[in-house]
């Protein structure tokens, strides 16, 4: 897994490809499945209450990851289906698309999962997720008042994030 391919800690954000807000919502989970952050910009449909929604999202990612690890056609050494895997272990996925949305996913070596839900026509968002991860490192991890594993309550992080996501194509 490559995360910091020679880039600085805080590189300049990737150039937005189009204007307008295409992002629907974003989740950040830690490795225990605790939802550290949930941001929502445009979500007309809500089928569940927020706690259930977060759990379902984490479960979907967990199961899809074990599915891709098992399906991986490039390796013969695959564990049993459903065995939990360490971050970076096994074949993972980076996005999926339905007719109404596209979900982009990134997992850091420490098990932080960043999920961005956008319009289905959005371009490849790998770099953007890395940039968001850098924002998380800068504004959350480096904050001395933040206790790891607790929900993020940082006004500065939220405004920077909103600003960045608004410019995403």
């Amino acid at each position: 897994m490559q995360f910091f391919g020679g880039s600085e800690i805080s590189p300049s954000p990737p150039v937005p490809t189009a204007s307008g807000n295409n992002a629907h919502m974003m989740y950040i989970f830690n490795r225990n499945g605790v939802c550290l952050l949930y941001r929502e910009w445009n979500r007309p449909l809500r089928t569940l209450d927020s706690n259930q929604d977060h759990k379902l999202m984490f479960g979907l990612l967990f199961s899809l990851k074990s599915l891709t690890a098992k399906m991986d056609p490039s390796s013969t050494e695959k564990g049993n289906l459903g065995v939990p895997q360490l971050p970076g272990q096994g074949c993972s996925f980076h996005s999926f698309r339905t007719n109404t949305y596209k979900l982009s996913f990134m997992e850091s070596p420490s098990g932080i999962k960043i999920i961005l839900v956008t319009h289905p026509n959005a371009s490849d968002l790998k770099e953007s997720l890395k940039y968001i991860y850098n924002l998380y490192v800068e504004y959350v991890v480096k904050n001395p008042l933040y206790t790891p594993g607790t929900p993020i309550r940082s006004e500065l992080f939220n405004t920077t994030l909103d600003q960045y996501v608004r410019g995403l194509g």
Binding site: L56, T68, C91, F93, H94, F96, R97, T98, T100
Partner: peptide, 23 residues
């Protein structure tokens, strides 16, 4: 089925394309 439930917009018909690292 779960991906349809998590859709932010009504009318979702499920995953069409899943992009993994090797397939």
């Amino acid at each position: 089925a779960i991906s349809q439930q998590l859709s932010p917009i009504p009318g979702c018909a499920g995953i069409e394309l899943l992009e993994a690292d090797t397939f």
